[in-house]
């Protein structure tokens, strides 16, 4: 029931989206595999995360949200 600001569709309820979480760079040999695949920053505060608007425009969005308040920020 949270509102997610979709740049294509406007504010929509969170149930329309899949929250994929923080962007995950692919393993590129520069870091240990576990670091690349599993590790998360899991920051408390402003985070950039990927959302998929599954039941809307089906776009993958990078949105900024504060994980300590749940507020989306510009």
């Amino acid at each position: 029931m949270r509102l997610v600001p979709c740049p294509t569709c406007g504010p929509r309820e969170a149930g329309e989206f899949v929250c994929f979480g923080e962007p995950r760079p692919r393993p590129d040999g520069t870091r240990p595999l576990a670091e690349a695949i599993y590790a998360r920053d899991n920051l408390k505060g402003p985070v950039a995360e990927l959302w998929w608007h599954r039941a809307g425009c089906r776009r993958w969005l990078t949105l900024r949200r504060n994980s300590a308040t749940n507020a989306f920020v510009e």
Partner: peptide, 11 residues
């Protein structure tokens, strides 16, 4: 479906 669109749009 999610994975195909993730690979196409993000990766």
């Amino acid at each position: 479906l999610q994975r195909f669109s993730y690979c196409r749009q993000v990766l």
